[in-house]
Amino acid sequence: MSFEHAFDVDVRRKLGDATVGATFTADGGLTVLHGSSGAGKSSGLAMVAGLLRPDSGHVRVLGETLFDAAAGIDVPAYRRRLGLVFQDGRLFPHMTVRANLLYGWKLADLADRWIEPAVVIEFLGIEALLDRRPRTLSGGEAQRVAIGRALLSGARALLLDEPLTALDPARREEILRVIERLRDELKLPMLYVTHDREEAARLATQTITVERI
């Protein structure tokens, strides 16, 4: 596969009176989408993930066109193979941690499973949590499980939407390290939305500023 960029994004959408959108290209490593709140960073991420349909533009990830308004291409989110990690984890409350982790794994094609559950569990240090219910987890634990769940779904890139916002400083540090290791050891392309400059400075291999349009 040959392609110029990991992410090639140009999306626009009207939300109420405002138009939100983002135009950028990003290579491998961790790309921080930075900008004042309300600039449309999260909406941009949702459009890349396929949860929000852009009015115009295109989304290409690792050379594959996932959305192209002009060409009439719109791959549904469940076929995009992009792992989305939300601010609030969003673990399924009616499933154990184990079932949450394996949810996307079971749905992924064999060829797309690039990492084993045992490896992920080890990597994230969540062995002891497997039989617990999400509501019994701390914020940091839940976020680690959410990251593991996204990795196991066969995701070829991770999209992280302010994953540290809901955490206290100690937990932030814990997750920051996990993300650094994802970046350095797994070499997974990541789009990372934050409005925290320190966080951006520490994590980013590339920073893109999203402006209000």
Binding site: Y78, R79, R90, F92, G104, L107
Partner: peptide
């Protein structure tokens, strides 16, 4: 948003 999460994990509507 739970359904959105499931969607990003590869679950089609029926699933």
């Amino acid at each position: 948003r739970f359904e959105q999460a499931a969607e990003t994990l590869g679950a089609a509507p029926a699933r």
